[in-house]
Design a protein around this nucleic acid. Sequence first.
DNA 1: GCCTGTCTTTGACGAAGATCAAAAATTTTG
DNA 2: CAAAATTTTTGATCTTCGTCAAAGACAGGC
Lengths: 261, 261
Amino acid sequence: METLAEKVLFDTVFGRIESTPRNLVCSSNKPSPGPGLECADCEIKGLSICESLDADEFELLERIGRTVSFAAKATLFEQGREAPFVSNITSGALRLSKLLPDGRRQVVGFALPGDFLGLAMEPTHMFTADALTPVKVCQFSRQGFSDLMDQKPKLMRAVLNMAAHELSLAQDQMVVLGRRTAEEKIASFLIGMRNRYARIHGPSVHVPLPMTRLDIGDYLGLTVETVSRMMTRMAREKIIVIVPDGVRLLEVARLEQLAEM
Amino acid sequence: METLAEKVLFDTVFGRIESTPRNLVCSSNKPSPGPGLECADCEIKGLSICESLDADEFELLERIGRTVSFAAKATLFEQGREAPFVSNITSGALRLSKLLPDGRRQVVGFALPGDFLGLAMEPTHMFTADALTPVKVCQFSRQGFSDLMDQKPKLMRAVLNMAAHELSLAQDQMVVLGRRTAEEKIASFLIGMRNRYARIHGPSVHVPLPMTRLDIGDYLGLTVETVSRMMTRMAREKIIVIVPDGVRLLEVARLEQLAEM
DNA sequence: GCCTGTCTTTGACGAAGATCAAAAATTTTG
DNA sequence: CAAAATTTTTGATCTTCGTCAAAGACAGGC
């Protein structure tokens, strides 16, 4: 039996700070039936899986979902561990990374609101997910979600589209990793982040960077030092301005040219 | 109207050498009902999408499919072009690549029998596919296949599983491209090819390499020269033997150690 | 508010792999 | 089968980026 002290310890170690069972997924096409329901003010209306569902399907999804919050620096799950849940991110940012036996690390992506974790539907996690900021997710049991997909082709279709899109992004990243210079890597990273935030908050030249230079390096196949030097150089050349928690893009056209596919 | 001469020219330019309409998908759970049907001797029984279907679903799939053959060096489709078809490879090998505007190339994968092209279900192709050897594919109209998926969840599930697996492989390749030395890249490439052929032909230390050193380099983010030097060195160190059209692995354990995830 | 730990930046140097050049081997073509 | 084209290999040199070292900047905790 788990004592309260043990539970608090567990939640602290794993950074989980709140959990509202049986409580809302994310959508707006349903009136709030009382306290605790959070879909009405879900920030990712129209960006997530939920968008593609109609009322009855949504209701079924709601039944197996709950919202869970994590503190910054919390580990949502670790590579190789059992994967009892799949999740839909509603706020915050995550780092998704793979670790080599000798400690080298490859960041395979950064997850933002609207992204789905667990597309592979595999029983164990293929990478580690760490919160870069406080994070909220809609969490579903993997089995329950899988069963619901089999009953509701529209849901499965939405997941398939998401997986296909992710695959496409992964292949683009292969081009970046394999065939681009350090400068081009940084440029395509910044343009990529700008485009992703544009989908969420609308277009802006201010790009938040919740990850460290080390994380960026591990994403682009560079060292921290090289990332820092390149960003400093771009700032010196007035292509970007480095601001707290991110950058401001001054010469978007120049960056897009460097990043062009 | 298309004249015969024009058609022959077209097929020659694009390397298509044979096409048997309305014939053939790939599976064994159906008796051959006459001439032209090739599923009975399909080499990839149990490896492809078809495996997961039952008789009625298979019949519907068969109705919209046909087998098409391509000569070695033929281009099946080009990045950016319309994608009217999706295909299931039944024999041969393909190079899937992305081209940067300045001519640099990234090979995003090599497709072997059992692999599915068009998982993204997007209206245009995200990469170019070239035949490395004579190739046969089961081809389906994208729209027809998409519609059938919506009617047959099991088919969609099979495609989703395939996409999830591809995504996982792409992420592994990101680790290889971003965080591995030239020697480790070659080792993981050889082990990867061995494992893929093992699924098709059973385990063997003989690994066919239908692609050139340049293709391998463009897959691993290396130059031809580096690929050649590393393979020559491995041969000198008796880790592999270079044979016509491939390699023989002498020290699989050593390679696996270099490639280990 | 100061101390500690983490993150970022900068500099000097070195090495892995790219580039350039050319010969050797292999395949394709007429 | 010889000539041409392509692919592979080898060598010499160069460059980009990694490594090592250390100083600043910044954030969180007591």
